[in-house]
Amino acid sequence: MTSADPPLPDPLFPLPDAAARAAASADAATAAPTAVDLLADAGWLESLRRQMQRFARLQLGDDGAADDAVQDALLGALGGAKRFGGRSAVRTWVFAILKNKIADQLRLRGRSINTSSLLAEDDDEPRELDEMFDARGHWTPAATPRAWGDPEASLDNRQFWVVFEVCLDGLPPRLGRVFMMRELVELDSDEICAAVGITASNLFVMLHRARARLRECLATRWYTDGQPC
């Protein structure tokens, strides 16, 4: 892992597999834009910065700290931009740097503040699960997952992404934060537990709740809405 303000020697930022694969395939493809091209493209950079900020804010819960982390990560990325090509490889790589900045921040806070204060802001009764399952642990009729038709097709529908963001934003902040750490930053369980100061079993409960909520939100607002039962 990194110190609070690392330079960017490569071994400190091992590429996630996805980035390595994407980078490799981008090499094979003709004329993928390089990281240098992309980071010099104001429009692309702005869109990337917005996504990073949104992500960092969710993780850190504080605009100032989030802006700092994003700034640091982008500067770090500019310093080492030569080896990468292709949009998703560059994005994954920049997010990997941001992930380290955020983990540093969280670690620092863990030492200086009571960790529980980081997580104390929502009520955390797992009520959603009590509503999805009956007393015997079966799905209630309303909550029973039903087939989603053709999920691939949704990915090409602009409206779907609006609904998806609404559902993602609907997660309580604490759940949303660990869920994004797991699914978007792809931290493993140990890293998340260490950064946030919870036990593995807490984490698994939270991820279960987050997935169940997100699934139900998508089912209700997108996949079954307007479809005959």
Partner: peptide, 23 residues
């Protein structure tokens, strides 16, 4: 199955080029 879909959607969400412009 739907957990797989959600994971795939999240990765796409992260890696797509423009917010609100995956279509």
């Amino acid at each position: 199955r739907q957990l797989d879909v959600i994971r795939q959607v999240l990765r796409r969400y992260r890696d797509r080029d423009e917010p609100g412009d995956a279509a």
